[in-house]
């Protein structure tokens, strides 16, 4: 299987506003794909359609040869799509480790009757879950912080923890919504290394939204550019850098490194 994700003519209309206009794309297995574009271009809306927060107005989404357009958000997680959020949405009152454990499918799908009855087998199963989650914490570099409440972690660490939480769902495809936002250059280098680790060592696919051009150009195998809800370019970083349409989209509107509406 070489194609992991495909969107066919996907559009999203809110009231009279077309946020995403007839986008089609295909993502190959084992590539790091980036989605860039000025503010309000529809990147996050597109993410929300891939993860099931919104239902596309038209078009369909195929994930690993299966039409997932009508699946709910939680069902898509079970299929192997997980995500992070632009405005971090961790469970603030839970510890770093708990944030991961609760995302672990065998943990949050625990059977109520078995929970109430307890028993040795359940304990063994939980040990395995804890070990797997601690491994992931190690990967995102937060092993020492496992007992820390998410809300007490510095911003950059919270972003990493959210990536860890997305990994704990055991996904095949991870969608990262501005993972580098608010990070300094050292942290961004670490993030680049982490994303490489996720794709190369863990065999996951990564689709990301990012504003930092240096970061995007350095990490992406391929880049898609959205503007006003339309796909205006698709190519390897070098092509994108010289694409006149892309330059116009950015310079025409001014490039602001800010949160997207």
């Amino acid at each position: 299987m070489s194609e992991i994700l495909r969107a066919n003519n996907v559009s999203m209309v809110f009231g009279g506003l077309t946020a995403v206009d007839n986008i089609s794309l295909a993502m190959e297995d084992n590539e790091i794909l980036s989605l860039i574009g000025p503010n309000g271009a529809g990147k996050t809306t597109f993410f929300n359609m891939l993860t099931g927060v919104y239902k596309p107005t038209t078009g369909n989404i195929i994930f690993m040869d299966e039409d997932i357009t009508h699946l709910k958000a939680h069902q898509r997680v079970a299929k192997g799509i997980s995500r992070t959020f632009q405005n971090i949405r961790l469970f603030k009152d839970m510890t770093a480790l708990e944030n991961l454990m609760v995302a672990h499918p065998r943990c949050n799908q625990e059977n109520l009757a078995r929970v109430l009855l307890g028993g040795r087998k359940l304990k063994m199963q939980r040990q395995a879950i804890v070990e797997e989650c601690e491994e992931i914490l190690e990967i995102v570099g937060l092993k020492e912080k496992e007992g820390e409440l998410a809300t007490n972690l510095p911003y950059g660490k919270q972003r990493l923890l959210e990536i860890g939480r997305a990994l704990a769902t055991d996904p095949k495809l991870v969608l990262l919504d501005e993972p580098g936002a608010g990070m300094n250059s050292v942290e961004k280098e670490e993030l680049t290394a982490l994303i490489r680790h996720i794709t190369e060592k863990m065999g996951k696919n990564v689709l990301l939204i990012e504003h930092d051009m240096k970061f995007v150009m350095g990490i992406s195998d391929r880049i898609l550019v959205l503007d006003h809800g339309e796909l205006i370019a698709n190519g390897v970083p070098r092509e994108i850098q010289t694409n006149p349409q892309v330059i116009e989209a950015y310079l025409g509107k001014g490039m602001i490194d800010d949160e997207e509406e």
């Binding site: 997680v77 469970f91 995302a103």
Partner: peptide, 11 residues
């Protein structure tokens, strides 16, 4: 805590 985040991890 956050229903949308909960759904995003399969709950």
């Amino acid at each position: 805590a956050d229903e949308i985040a909960a759904e995003s991890i399969g709950i």
